[in-house]
Design a protein around this nucleic acid. Structure first.
Ligand SMILES: [Mn+2]
Ligand SMILES: [Mn+2]
Ligand SMILES: [Zn+2]
Ligand SMILES: [Zn+2]
Lengths: 147, 147
DNA sequence: TTTCTAGTTGCGAATATTTGCAGTAACGAT
DNA sequence: ATCGTTACTGCAAATATTCGCAACTAGAAA
C-alpha cells in the first residue's frame, strides 16, 4: 500500500475529513523523498490546480506534524522546513555563513539528552534538531577575525 | 567605567557613528541584566521618546551582535531574543508545550561539539544554543499519548 | 564655523507564517 | 438521494523581521 494512501486512511480513521486539498498535499509530500518548504509544496500543486491557498498548506502540514506523519525543523531566520517522518531522525547542522544544511547522526546527541534529563528533568527532542555553527569550508575562510 | 560607556567607546573606535538612537538603545540594554526582545527595547524607549523606529532597533541589535556585544538566540516560531554577551554562554531549553525557557550549562554540550567537529568538520556554536523538548511539568501532563 | 560625504535613519513595502471569520463542503445519518 | 452538523477552506488582516530607498546627520576636514 502506498504511503499517501496510508496517510489518508490514517487521518480518516482518526476522524479527520479527506478534502481534495489534503489529498493533493499528501500525494505531493509522499512523492517527495526529502526536505521541503510549505511554499515548494504549494507551488508544485499550483502548476496544475490553481485553487489552493497557502494557508491551507500550512494548516495541513501542521496537522501532519501533530499526527506524527511529518516533522518540522525551524532553522531560524524565518526558515521552516518539513520532511516525511521516515526521513529519519537526525540533527541538522546549519552553517551560519553559507546556510548549507548537513544531516548529522542524531545518536551523537544521546549523551546530551541524558544529561539534560538528569540535571534539568528536560526531555530533549532529538528529532530533526537544528543547531548552528560553521561548516568546514567556512571555518577556513574565517581566519581574519580576532581570536 | 559603565557598560554602556564601554560599548559606545568601542563602537566609535571601530569606526561606527554614535547616534542618539544608538545611545538610547545601548543604555537601555546596559541597564537590562537578562534576555530581551527587540520590541521590549523599543517599547521601553518609546515611553520617553517617540522618534525611534523599530527597524533601527533591529539594525542596532544586529550591529551589536556582529561586534560581539550582544548575542542572539532564535527560538523558532518567529521568536528571537537577545542578551548581553556577559549573560554568559548557555543552552536554552525551550519547552514545546508551555514555552518556558530554562538556562542550561553549555559545558554539557562540549562532547557533542567535539563529535560534530570530528565527524563532520562542523564547528558547533554553543553560545546561546536553543534546543526544544518538554520540561518536567509538561512531561507529566503527556501520559495520554501513544508511546 | 561651515562644508562635505558616507554612514545611518525612518518609512513603507516585502517576507514567511499565523489567525479570525464567514462561507463551503465532507460525510454520517436519515 | 437529501440533509445537517461542524470541520475545513479561502481570504484578508495581523505578526515579527528584513530590506530598498530617499532624506538626514555625525563627525572629519577645511
Ligand atoms: Mn534532514
Ligand atoms: Mn540565556
Ligand atoms: Zn558554511
Ligand atoms: Zn513545559
Amino acid at each position: 500500500m502506498s504511503k499517501d494512501h496510508n496517510y489518508l486512511t490514517t487521518l480518516k480513521e482518526r476522524g479527520y475529513r479527506i478534502t481534495p486539498q489534503r489529498e493533493m498535499i499528501i500525494k505531493t509530500i509522499a512523492r517527495n523523498p526529502t526536505h521541503f518548504t510549505a511554499d515548494e509544496i504549494h507551488t508544485k500543486i499550483q502548476t496544475r490546480v490553481h485553487s489552493l491557498n497557502i494557508a491551507t498548506v500550512y494548516r495541513t502540514l501542521e496537522l501532519l506534524v501533530e499526527e506524527g506523519m511529518v516533522c518540522r525543523s525551524d532553522f531560524g531566520e524565518g526558515h521552516i522546513i518539513y520532511a516525511p517522518e521516515d526521513h529519519g531522525p537526525h540533527i541538522h547542522l546549519v552553517c551560519r555563513q553559507c546556510n548549507q544544511v548537513i544531516d548529522a547522526d542524531s545518536t551523537l546527541a544521546h549523551s546530551l539528552k541524558e544529561k539534560m534529563q538528569e540535571k534539568y528533568q528536560f526531555a530533549l527532542d532529538l528529532h530533526h534538531l537544528a543547531v548552528f555553527g560553521l561548516c568546514s569550508a567556512c571555518q577556513k575562510g574565517e581566519e581574519h577575525h580576532e581570536s
